[in-house]
Structure formats: C-alpha cells, structure tokens
C-alpha cells in the first residue's frame, strides 16, 4: 500500500453502517475525512445508497397506495354484495308475501271455504294452492271448497287441467269443489278449445255457490 488510509477501521464501520441503513431504506450520507482511495469508495457508496433508498421509498409509497386502493375497492364490493344480498332477500320475502296474499283461504261458512285464484295458474302455483286447499279441507273439516277464478283472465288447457286436478284431489278428501267466476268470454274460449269441464260443479258466482252448499247441507240434514 503506497498511501496510508486515515482512520481505516472507523471509516469501514461507517461504510458498513451506511449500507445497512440503505438496506432498511434510509439514506445515511458518509463524510469523507480525507482525500484518499477510500474517500472515492465512500462517495460511490453515497451515490448508490441515496439512489437505492429513494427507490425503496418509492416502492413503499406505491405499495401503500395499492394497499389503500385494494382496501377501498374491497369495501366497495363488500357493500355492493351486501346491498345485492339485501335486495335478493327482499325480493324473496316479497314473493313469499305475494304468494301468501294471492291465495287466501276464506272461511265462508261453517265447513265452507273459498279460494279466489288470481293471475296465472302454473304448475308450481297449482301445487301450492292444492296443498293449501287440502290442508284447509282437512283442518276445517270442510264439506265444500269454492274455487273462484274471477281473477284469472285467461284460462288455457293447462289452467283447466290444474283446476280439474284440484277438484279431483278435493274429492278424494270427501269434499266437493265448486268452480265460480268463469267469465263469459272465458267460457266461450273454453268451448272453442274443446276443454271439457263436465266433472266440475260450476256456479255463476260466490253467492249462488254458497246457496248450493247450504241447500246441500240442509238436504243431508247437517247443521248449518
């Protein structure tokens, strides 16, 4: 070695510290104490660590920002999901309510119940209504069940078939089904289709149906 290096041990320690600091993202500037070869290294290390720490800081900033955005978006999505779930639940409950409200069972008289049917009578609804009807017949010991279809605008073959099934099922429980509320134009259409409702007991409206029930119960000597 041609030149002596001043405070070699101390300066090497300082270099080591500076590198360690840089690794942790902090910039610690070295102060060259002499104009010697080590000073050149110290300056070089200064340049590198300053650049490195700036990079690390920037990456950390970007990461923090990303984390923040991810958190924000997640919260947003969670909120949307919660809202969606709430709406789905609301729709489900409203559907249940509509189902319940659309097929009430009316106790018209002792052992005479009536069910107004509204809208369309698809398979699912027909099954539900039949279940309700049969439960009501069984629980109230009903003799007569009046199905009123005033609220069914269009009666097609499927509807007619569902009605026939209800009538048969009720008959199996020993009760009699009476169909009311067939609109004149519906009657004409049923004739055009050729649907045969002969096995159904049909009355013009609830009033005449109820009269039929009462007359029949009187006839067989039941208390009314």
């Amino acid at each position: 070695m041609s030149e002596a290096i001043l405070n070699l041990e101390q300066r090497l320690t300082a270099l080591e510290d500076s590198l360690a600091e840089a690794a942790a993202g902090r910039y610690h500037e070295l102060q060259p104490e002499a104009d010697d070869p080590l000073a050149a290294i110290e300056l070089g290390v200064n340049l590198l660590t300053s650049a490195l720490s700036k990079q690390i800081k920037r990456v950390e900033e970007v990461n923090t920002e990303l984390d923040l955005r991810v958190a924000e978006r997640t919260a947003e999505l969670e909120q949307q999901l919660a809202e969606r779930t709430r709406q789905t639940e609301l729709i489900r409950r409203q559907q249940e309510a509509i189902q319940e409200l659309s097929t009430p069972v009316l106790q018209l008289w002792d052992r005479v119940i009536a069910m107004p049917i509204i809208g369309v009578l698809d398979t699912r609804r027909s099954v539900e209504i039949t279940q309700k009807l049969l439960d009501a017949v069984a629980n109230d010991n009903a003799r007569f069940a009046i199905l009123d279809i005033t609220g069914v605008e269009v009666v097609d073959t499927a509807t007619a078939s569902h009605l026939l099934q209800m009538v048969r099922a009720t008959g199996l429980l020993g009760a009699t089904c009476i169909l009311t509320g067939v609109q004149p134009v519906v009657a004409q259409t049923l004739v055009s289709i050729g649907v045969d409702l002969d096995e159904m007991l049909i009355r013009r409206n609830l009033q005449t149906a109820l009269r039929t029930c009462l007359l029949e119960m009187t006839r067989v000597g039941e208390e009314i």
Partner: peptide, 16 residues
C-alpha cells in the same frame, strides 16, 4: 312438471 295436463295445447292453438 306437466304430468296430468290435458295435453291438448297444440290442438287448442289450432282450434283457436
């Protein structure tokens, strides 16, 4: 699903 229907949907359309 539809078992027990009158099964005359197509015939009905033709008549209507």
């Amino acid at each position: 699903l539809e078992r027990g229907s009158l099964g005359c949907g197509m015939g009905a359309i033709a008549r209507l």
